[in-house]
């Protein structure tokens, strides 16, 4: 029985198909919102699906001089990592499929895989644009992953556990942590946008500076996997943040409402700001993000030691 359940969890829900379609829906919502903010009509509802399928059936050109295995394997690894991460979060407001002590750390690492794979993919293709793009992706890895991680630590320290489901449970029974830890929330949200290279943090693929960043040479399947992987990450990231900071996720309704509100906010941020230069991104993060998150963390620990109930 448990084998069947495990399979279902992997292939249908909450893993596999559900996550894929869910994340496509999120991409649609994101693009539509940005288009509306820009006074445009925006894409149709099936647009992300059409894009995905089209890329899948397109010719995949493998440039000469690259390591074929890596070239084909990296997109798969990136997608697999983000799909795996989806198993540990309270997807759709339902308790995570898997969980163990410390799964938060594993999830965060899995979410980092994506950036790493993009960076490697760019370095592998030996195209000049790709190389610069991947250097930038890796630079950003250091600049936003750390604050993002620190920002997720806040709620878990408050809850006293490294287990995502327990943090979620704790969040549901207490006052929303966006109120008690507003800084952490901000850092987490913007950190997520940085991870996903959404504007204004999209320097790694800043179209006008270096064509399409690390992925310049990918044409078909590889590109599709990277795109999908990023969509899944968006979904996972939003789920995590709403589970931690917006009073936890108890049921699908919670999930839909809270993540959509977050999406609205990120889409707004995307349309409002000019792209940050890469050094400005890094500087901003280390100076503001990391410091803010650290300050908050210290405060939490002190309060905890003092025995203040949060």
């Amino acid at each position: 029985m448990s084998v069947v359940l495990a399979l279902v969890a992997l292939v249908l829900f909450p893993g596999g198909l559900f996550v894929i379609f869910g994340s496509l829906a999120f991409e649609y919502a994101d693009r539509k919102l940005v288009a509306r903010f820009q006074n445009r009509v925006g894409p149709r509802w099936f647009q992300p699906l059409a894009d995905l399928v089209k890329l899948l059936v397109k010719e995949e050109i493998v440039p000469v001089g690259v390591n074929r295995g890596l070239f084909n394997g990296l997109p798969l690894a990136a997608l697999a990592a983000s799909l795996t991460a989806a198993l540990y979060v309270p997807m759709a407001g339902i308790a995570p499929a898997w969980g163990f002590r410390g799964d938060l750390v594993v999830t965060v690492y899995l979410l980092m895989m994506m950036t790493l794979c993009i960076g490697l993919a760019g370095a592998n293709t030996q195209d000049r644009f790709s190389l610069i793009g991947s250097t930038r992706a890796l630079t950003q890895l250091f600049s936003y992953e750390a604050p993002f991680l620190l920002a997720l630590l806040g709620p878990s320290i408050a809850a006293g556990t490294w287990r995502i489901s327990e943090v979620n449970g704790y969040a549901r029974e207490h006052i929303w942590m966006i109120v008690t830890q507003p800084l952490g929330f901000l850092v987490a949200l913007i950190g997520l946008m940085g991870k996903l290279e959404l504007p204004p943090f999209d320097a790694p693929e800043a179209e006008t500076e270096i064509v399409s960043g690390a992925l310049t040479e990918y044409s078909g399947r590889g590109l599709a996997f990277f795109h999908l992987g990023r969509d899944v990450e968006l979904l996972v990231g939003l789920t995590l943040i709403s589970a931690f900071y917006l009073g936890g996720l108890g049921n699908p309704l919670h999930f839909i409402l809270k993540t959509l509100v977050l999406l609205f906010v990120t889409a707004g941020l995307q349309s409002l700001f000019a792209r940050l230069r890469i050094d400005q991104t890094v500087g901003l993060w280390w100076r503001a993000g990391a410091v803010l998150a650290l300050v908050q963390l210290l405060l939490l620990i002190v309060l905890k030691i003092l025995g203040v109930r949060l």
Partner: peptide, 16 residues
């Protein structure tokens, strides 16, 4: 120019 700065919203509005 706004597009070069990554500020697509301004691009869209000024072109509108």
């Amino acid at each position: 120019a706004a597009h070069q700065a990554g500020f697509d919203t301004l691009f869209m509005y000024s072109w509108r």
